[in-house]
């Protein structure tokens, strides 16, 4: 395995980008870091700047104003960076696909590594998604 990717699976630092979500996925992601679920046990940590991040967690149906900013964020991230789409809006724009302000789903804009469906996904589902991502990386020799 690529040495960089191998290092990536050890302790994932996450940058959280909410691009037009309804907050629910965001608070469920934050919930993962609070005592009941506590993913910091596994070295997963929220970081304030994307320059420190190993993974970008994206929530929400992307709108016209946030597309350019998300692209900028992705460009600033150190490569290789993983992208996780959390919630139905990030996956398929959910009910906002008919909206005038949500032109494209996320995976047309960034390469997405893991899709976590749900409206909102439960914290268990989010953790499960991250575990699957790590397993996928480890098995991809």
């Amino acid at each position: 395995m690529n040495l960089k990717l191998k290092a990536l699976t050890k302790s994932i630092w996450v940058f959280h980008a909410s691009v037009g979500s309804c907050n629910n996925c965001d608070i469920e992601i934050l919930d993962c870091f609070t005592p009941r679920f506590d993913v910091e046990r596994f070295g997963i940590q929220l970081v304030g700047s994307v320059r420190h991040a190993d993974a970008i967690v994206v929530t929400g149906a992307m709108n016209r104003k946030s597309v350019s900013i998300l692209k900028k964020i992705y460009a600033q991230a150190p490569q290789p960076v993983l992208v996780a789409a959390v919630g139905q809006c990030a996956l398929s724009r959910h009910m906002f696909r008919f909206s005038y302000n949500c032109p494209e789903p996320l995976d047309k804009i960034l390469p997405v590594d893991v899709y976590i469906p749900g409206c909102p996904p439960k914290p268990e589902a989010i953790i499960d998604g991250i575990v699957k991502l790590v397993n996928k990386l480890r098995s991809a020799e």
């Binding site: 979500s21 309804c22 965001d26 104003k65 959910h94 909206s99 949500c102």
Partner: peptide, 28 residues
């Protein structure tokens, strides 16, 4: 950065579907 056009979308939904939509204005 969060504008999704919910008021406009509501005009395409019938009265019983709109609660599902407006619920997703805000998650809190």
């Amino acid at each position: 950065y969060n504008h999704r056009g919910i008021e406009k979308l509501a005009e395409d939904k019938h009265f019983d579907q709109v609660p599902y939509l407006v619920e997703r204005i805000c998650g809190i």
